[in-house]
Amino acid sequence: MLNKVEAYFTKELKEKAGILVVLTLLLLVPQYSWRLFFLLLLIASLLPRDVHRGKIKLMVSLPFSKGDVFWISYAFLITIIVITQIIGGAFFNISLSGIGWDILGTLIFSSAYFGIAMISVSLGFGNFGIPFLVLIADSFFGAIGNNWEFTYNLFRSPSGLNPYRMISPIYQGNRFAAFVFAAALLITAYILFERKGTSK
């Protein structure tokens, strides 16, 4: 398995060197909303782009199963995120526990949106457009019940609690619930990717 991981990582680093360097630098930006946008770009440029462009055939003709490709690509994403978060944290003098908490939040977001992007391409849609629309919807519906006064008054539940905000990959009102929701999206994406096939 380690050989597969090495082969896949090498291939990704060589094939996507340019965009990976640019996005890795941009991920060092401390501002949360921009970082989420750059994360979405990074996610869309990995496996979802390969599937969307029909390039996955090449990997599957090698001794990679679709499951291998899915999970190793996910591991690649996580690796980049963790490395950039640690570097960024050190650069901006964030405490160790702060970095850990940040990484956890970013991992939940990335897992959810990797799942969404993979669901999108497995169903024949784009690798960026649909996830971007979901991001906008997520930021809108997650904001209800909190900062936006008009929607607060219009939509808030009697208790004042917005249940979506709890699981929202952006807001993560409840980290555990958001984690479970992200994991569900990721597993759904994996099942769809396995079942629907990958090639045009």
């Binding site: 597969k4 090495e6 090498t10 291939k11 060589k14 094939e15 090449l58 090698l62 001794p63």
Partner: peptide, 30 residues
């Protein structure tokens, strides 16, 4: 799949991998 080696019809290749990169990749996988 480790016991199967495939040559596809379109001879599609990874865009930026050199011959040497391919050899390294295949030697890792087989």
């Amino acid at each position: 799949k480790e016991r199967i080696a495939v040559m596809n019809e379109e001879r599609e290749t990874f865009r930026r991998l050199t011959g040497g990169d391919y050899v390294k990749m295949w030697s890792l996988l087989y």
